[in-house]
Amino acid sequence: MPIKIPDDLPARRTLEVEGVVVMREAAAMRQDIRPLRIGMLNLMPNKITTEIQIARLLGATPLQVELTLVRMTDHVARNTPADHMESFYRPWDEVKSERFDGFIITGAPVERMPFEDVTYWDELQRVFDWTQTHVHRCFMICWAAQAAVHHFHGMPKYELPSKAYGIFRQQNRAPASPYLRGFSDDFSIPVSRWTEVRATDIPSDSGMAVLAESDETGLCLLDDAKHRSLHMFNHIEYDTTSLADEYFRDIAERSDFPVPANYFPKDDPARRPENRWRSHAHLLFGNWINEIYQTTPFDISQIGQRELVTSEAG
């Protein structure tokens, strides 16, 4: 099944060239099925690139997905044209009365700031609480994952002595998890962050399970069953050249910035990197979508009510 996105969203052209099946809005309305409603609160600076990355992964699943792009209500994006934000994004204050089968919150370039100093922190905390009554399952990425475990579990983040930056092997710690169905015993994915959260800070009564982690870069993937959330602390959604784009941006500001580890062939930035994580990115998002499909109410208005009953029973 295809992904349904606005007909004139720039991501459409890229996805169609790649062979991702994208459904036009008029055709979607004629189908007598309920698509999965997935919202994405996009906090990344280059929003158009992130739209393509996430829509590509959602569109590869066998189910029809309707993607809603969401922004913080009062925060003004500085790196994306205002007309793009106006045309394709809805403020969270406008969608908070609606319900979603799944909700994704991306990373943001604010990880070295204390959470409380982020200008939209108060609203983001309200978003986190809202997901517990209006969203069936969540997927938090990088800084958003750190922010979520801080909000829900009080876990601190720690600044690293140097940027964790490159492609790093992750150990599969929970092969029986439905989210890691089909995963290798280890797998490599992009890491790009200045901070970390630590497994030693996971509260003993949190119910969280470590699904994947690295000897070099620590926690990678947590399953927060109580809050129906996956927390991905790295960037499995990245394109082949995403780290290269970051590297060339960084050396423009600081010429001695290190080359991303295990990324460029022979550590030569003149050579095109090879993508060794694409299949696992598709697999993880496919497993997440499948879990949503298997458990979400057919009547979307029941989302929140079922979760409340389950929470009270637990």
Rank of each mutant, 00 (worst) to 15 (best):
residue 145 A to F: 04
residue 187 F to G: 01
residue 175 P to N: 08
residue 195 T to R: 02
residue 247 Y to I: 11
residue 236 I to C: 06
residue 199 A to S: 07
residue 240 T to Y: 04
residue 206 S to I: 12
residue 195 T to N: 05
residue 140 M to S: 07
residue 246 E to S: 08
residue 244 A to C: 03
residue 187 F to W: 15
residue 188 S to L: 05
residue 242 S to N: 07
residue 135 V to S: 02
residue 239 D to S: 07
residue 147 A to W: 06
residue 223 D to S: 09
residue 219 L to S: 09
residue 230 L to F: 14
residue 203 P to V: 14
residue 243 L to H: 02
residue 216 E to K: 03
residue 166 G to D: 01
residue 145 A to C: 06
residue 151 H to G: 01
residue 225 A to M: 13
residue 142 C to Q: 01
residue 172 N to R: 04
residue 192 S to E: 00
residue 170 Q to P: 01
residue 177 S to T: 04
residue 245 D to I: 11
residue 177 S to H: 07
residue 212 A to K: 00
residue 200 T to M: 06
residue 209 A to E: 15
residue 136 H to F: 15
residue 164 A to W: 08
residue 156 P to N: 11
residue 164 A to K: 01
residue 221 L to M: 09
residue 212 A to V: 03
residue 149 V to M: 02
residue 220 C to E: 15
residue 172 N to G: 04
residue 184 S to N: 13
residue 227 H to P: 15
residue 177 S to D: 00
residue 248 F to S: 05
residue 157 K to L: 00
residue 211 L to P: 02
residue 166 G to T: 01
residue 135 V to A: 02
residue 147 A to Y: 05
residue 233 F to L: 15
residue 221 L to V: 04
residue 153 H to F: 15
residue 220 C to H: 11
residue 165 Y to T: 04
residue 219 L to T: 10
residue 241 T to F: 04
residue 233 F to S: 08
residue 142 C to M: 05
residue 240 T to V: 11
residue 155 M to S: 00
residue 176 A to V: 04
residue 135 V to E: 10
residue 158 Y to A: 05
residue 196 E to K: 06
residue 146 Q to K: 06
residue 242 S to F: 11
residue 244 A to E: 13
residue 139 F to H: 12
residue 242 S to W: 09
residue 172 N to K: 05
residue 168 F to Y: 15
residue 181 R to V: 10
residue 161 P to M: 00
residue 179 Y to S: 07
residue 193 R to D: 07
residue 181 R to Y: 14
residue 140 M to W: 12
residue 176 A to L: 08
residue 164 A to G: 11
residue 226 K to P: 14
residue 182 G to D: 15
residue 198 R to Q: 09
residue 228 R to M: 12
residue 233 F to A: 03
residue 231 H to F: 15
residue 216 E to Q: 07
residue 193 R to P: 01
residue 229 S to Y: 13
residue 157 K to C: 04
residue 212 A to W: 02
residue 232 M to G: 03
residue 157 K to F: 06
residue 183 F to E: 03
residue 149 V to F: 03
residue 159 E to N: 12
residue 172 N to I: 13
residue 223 D to E: 13
residue 137 R to N: 02
residue 176 A to I: 06
residue 217 T to V: 13
residue 137 R to V: 11
residue 145 A to S: 07
residue 206 S to F: 03
residue 193 R to T: 06
residue 143 W to L: 08
residue 218 G to P: 00
residue 187 F to E: 02
residue 226 K to T: 12
residue 192 S to Y: 04
residue 213 E to F: 09
residue 171 Q to W: 10
residue 232 M to E: 15
residue 139 F to Y: 10
residue 187 F to R: 11
residue 216 E to W: 10
residue 236 I to Y: 09
